[in-house]
Design a protein around this nucleic acid. Structure first.
Lengths: 349, 349
DNA sequence: CTCATAAATGCAAACGTTTGCATAGCCAGC
DNA sequence: GCTGGCTATGCAAACGTTTGCATTTATGAG
């Protein structure tokens, strides 16, 4: 029950005494085929259990009907949500999605980019590694006019379609909020500056300080991969000696949560002694006690935008060089108990 | 700069005055090709920027070097972790992974199964919809001896390779634990019984009750999709009238968390008045206060097993009917404050 | 009834690989 | 010098579609 069961359009054609071309056209609803023939063909296809061979079709017209999604990791809330949305949306339009994870390794990213190219994906959406500063491995896609969209972690100085959050405004908003809550000595735990979005958040942070005449102290900013371990270590440095800061702006929620836990351990009260704000509005931020103020980046919306951008670019004729757009997804500060001292616990619903 | 740049092995062959077959074999390290020729060919391939066309190769030998992963959704912790591991492991072996989400819709699952078949994936790993009881859409894979592995949500009465957690033991362990903590009236919020793993957990639940001579009351068991909304509604029913239960076994952590929140609202103390246990050991379970006792299912391990099973099956010759195995992944009860009244908060590290 | 025109169908090449079989070159042994 | 047996390479078919162009068939006007 092997090769024998694999029906092709040739089988359908023979069965019906038609030519393969007619069958092919009938299955693809070509206008030149009569309604009656189409009906016959489709019926026979069903009867024989015919399944189109995507690879053959792909080879013929050099498009695979699959698109690639290259992200650092899908087990993190933010990229996972985006991937979900992109996947669902493209599925609706008849595309398969290959999701690949670089695990934040530059080498893996390069390798996967090449593999995806070999797989002849019709388009690629990328959120880069924290450490990607050289983007030349994406040149093949540009050179061949294969739609290429970057999101969230995007390149600078690389002409390409981009979808991202307003990280400058995010940094600004968070810092202003902390200052309004009375903070005078704020620590910022940032990701590495090789990633442009952190550069922007730091810029927002600085601007806010400046606007309120608070000096920017280098020693109060940390640049590191935003893991639990690193956050814990940063805490040990921060609280090694007085004076303690009175506010922390953490560039992700994992870091914010870890800081909160550290504070519990050393009996620093949150938010009374220290106010904490995270970033990305991870579900955990809402659930922990006290809830952690964070910045919603609307990942579902970002996913929509990415999918739209991809579909849009694929619409354009392959020959013409792609025109690039930049979509900015809004952000919103979600205030919770970790940064608001009055903290009349607001119950919802 | 379009079609022109797409180099093929024909270009390499011409450039070198060799035949395409020699080039093909050289690139694939065929033993019959001399070392010198291989070197020359590979060098030229690099020079021309040649990228193999996976679709052409796939068409020729009817294998795509991609495998499919079909899960309910990747934005949930458990499937996301498994997907990550499977993906990474198969990537190491030179496979691409197409991840698809059924969004717990049976129709989508069927449609995606067919699409994946058309894409001629070399193997498929599936965690089904909550509502999948008819598995005949996977028959094409079985009939064509394409490796097929089910994990977590697996079929019953369908001869196939399976990787799953020990859900019976899980249900048993959780319930025993609650009883040992003094619970006499335990509610079980289960998923729908169309999904075999919930059947097993319920079985474990019943056995534990029986062993301790506690009657099993139908009214104390809920079968529902395990969402926040449903959990909230269940709470409203449960706490509509006295007597309140003194223990809850929720079949996932989202449900457990929601119950905890409901208890906060109506001033039922956890764990003093009500003990709660969840399932899957979602990161949120650890972070909420009180921490929620849950069952670790070792998703990373499960992912490893799935990947191994896939690779193993792909090793076997395509012709011979697949021999099927069943791997059982262990479970472990992670005790936290939500179910332990003495609750000397254990701090780690 | 004829001829032009439109509609429906067929032919055959092409997409880029892989691979069974054939062949050319070479060496050793008789 | 012939045979046999290697090794390294080439030839050509095949994988299952799609599609430009050619061809047949139906349609309708004169």
């Amino acid at each position: 029950m092997n090769k024998r069961t694999e029906k092709t359009i040739v089988d359908i054609a023979e069965e019906l005494g038609l030519s393969v071309s007619t069958v092919s056209r009938a299955l693809n609803d070509h206008p030149n085929i009569s309604a009656r023939t189409k009906e016959k063909v489709k019926k026979m296809a069903r009867k024989l259990g015919y399944r189109p061979n995507a690879m053959a079709a792909g080879l013929r017209n050099n498009r695979s009907k699959t698109i690639g999604l290259l992200v650092p990791r899908i087990s993190m809330f933010f990229p996972a949500t985006i991937s979900t949305v992109v996947q669902n949306k493209l599925q609706e339009h008849g595309y398969n999605v290959i999701i690949c994870q670089s695990n934040d390794s530059y080498e893996q990213e390069v390798a996967l980019t090449n593999t995806l190219y070999s797989a002849r994906i019709d388009a690629l959406a990328v959120s880069t590694t924290l450490y990607t500063t050289d983007f030349s491995h994406f040149d093949i896609f540009k050179d061949n006019n294969i739609p290429l969209v970057f999101f969230d972690r995007v390149p600078t100085d690389y002409d390409v379609t981009v979808v991202k959050g307003d990280d400058y405004l995010g940094g600004l908003t968070v810092t202003k909020h902390l200052i309004e809550q009375g903070c005078k000595d704020i620590v910022h735990i940032s990701g590495p500056l090789t990633c442009s979005l952190y550069v922007e958040r730091v810029a927002g942070f600085r601007t806010a300080l400046q606007q309120h005449k608070i000096p920017f102290k280098k020693s109060r900013v940390f640049y590191q991969e935003l893991t639990r371990e690193n956050a814990w270590q940063a805490c040990e440095k921060i609280f090694a000696k007085q004076p303690y800061p009175d506010g922390v702006f953490a560039a992700n929620d994992t870091t914010a949560i870890t800081i909160l836990e550290y504070c519990r351990k050393i009996n620093v009260r949150v938010p009374e002694d220290l106010k904490i704000v995270g970033y990305s509005n991870d579900p955990r931020a809402e659930i922990i006690n006290p809830g952690i103020t964070s910045v919603d980046q609307f990942p579902a919306l970002m996913g929509e935008r990415v999918a739209e951008a991809l579909l849009d670019l694929m619409q354009q004729p392959r020959q013409s060089p792609q025109r690039h757009a930049a979509a900015m997804v809004p952000i919103q500060l979600i205030k919770r108990a970790s940064s608001e001292v009055k903290s009349t616990k607001r119950k919802k619903s």
